[in-house]
Simulated assay, not measured.
Amino acid sequence: MKDSDKKFIIDYETETWSRCADSYLDTFSMLTGQMLPRVIEAANVTSGSRVLDVGCGPGNSTRALADAGAIATGLDFSESMVAAAKAANPGLSFKLADGEKIPEDDDSFDAVIANYVVHHLPEPAKVFAEAARVLKPGGRFVFAVWGPNPEQSSIGCFVRAVSAHHDPQALPHGPLFGVTDKETFLPLMESAGLTGFELTNHKTEWKCDTLDPVIDGLWTWANVKDFPQEKQDKIMAGMKENCSKFAVEGGYVFPHTAILGHATKP
């Protein structure tokens, strides 16, 4: 990847998730947090396990690890996310750092997790290698990411509404965005020296009483507030219309899927 392309992705991802820091716990974490029990189980977390949470965001994943008995450290590249994590989780350890240069010693963690993170990375091979470096022999690297794009119903409602009035391809992403096949991830694991890679599919749901968390999260993520007001109004109308098919008594239920990957350091 060219340095200019990498910088473009890093700048975009940092700006985006820094913007989402204050709202993430009340929006996207309602969905992405559903994979945390599976991630923790796959990581073989037990009382006293040392676990590194790469891309910890506002710290809900690090808190889940600590609640499971782990000695957890959260790591994120967004200063705003780290600040939000520290404010919401006093007593837990959080560090501002890039996953390509993890500020930890070799062979120092029993597990490394990345919950809905690796598809944001411009050079995932470097992060996978760093995860392997800091793992103890026998330790596991575990990640969760979105399943196939057509199976992400709430995001699909939003993208279809945006596409009618704006170019969604204008938003850059890392090279693993939308990737769900084992054949792509396996070489990354193997090049990092990790073995026994497995990839499994899982169903999740975004349940909410109103559309507010879904709209607020996606609005902030795409920075729709900076669009002309007329365009915002049209996107909002389209979003609500698209979401209507997922209405149930007392709110909304949006079906989603995720994939879970894990491998072990020999």
Rank of each mutant, 00 (worst) to 15 (best):
A144G: 06
A129M: 04
L135M: 05
A114L: 08
A72F: 01
G69E: 04
S78F: 02
A131W: 00
S163W: 09
V82S: 05
M189R: 06
V127T: 03
A64P: 01
C56H: 06
F77S: 11
G138M: 15
I71K: 12
P137C: 05
E151T: 09
L65D: 00
F94N: 00
T195Q: 13
G193S: 05
L188C: 10
K86I: 06
K126A: 15
E151F: 09
C157M: 08
S80K: 15
L199W: 01
H166W: 14
H202Y: 06
P150R: 11
L65N: 00
D106F: 11
V159Q: 09
L135G: 02
L171F: 15
S153Q: 08
F143R: 01
G174A: 10
P58T: 10
T200A: 14
L135D: 05
A192Y: 02
D105G: 14
V112L: 09
K95T: 13
P148K: 12
I113T: 05
T195R: 08
I71S: 07
E198S: 07
I155E: 11
V82F: 07
A97F: 08
V134C: 00
D110I: 02
F77K: 06
T200I: 12
A125D: 15
C157D: 11
T200R: 14
L96I: 13
S191G: 15
G156K: 03
G193N: 09
G55Y: 08
D67L: 15
L96R: 04
G178F: 10
P148V: 09
F94T: 00
E151L: 07
M81H: 12
F185Y: 13
